[in-house]
Amino acid sequence: MLKKLQIQAICGFGVGTSTLLMMKLTTAFKEYGVDAHIFTGDVIVGPTVPCDVIFTSKELAGNVQRKAKCPVIVITNFVNQAEIKDKVKGFLDSNKEV
């Protein structure tokens, strides 16, 4: 990969739940040895910020998807490292093929 992946965690305001998600994502990307820039965003501005992938909750996904130009991945359990790791792997695998 040539450039650092830009990964965004989105919640309502980019302060609470997205912070939790960002931490889990950081751990997951590290485990796969991928150097990524992981940041948080809110549901209004976040989707318009350029990035490679967005992770968010089921309830916000619809709103985010309408505006986002990148894949949007839904996380059901924000504290479950296994689910997040699994979905990060899914993203990394699909990203390789492109």
């Binding site: 609470g16 739940t17 359990n77």
Partner: peptide
Amino acid sequence: EFGPYIVIAPGMAI
């Protein structure tokens, strides 16, 4: 406004 997304994991809400 945003729905119950604050329920971030089974049995847990912020």
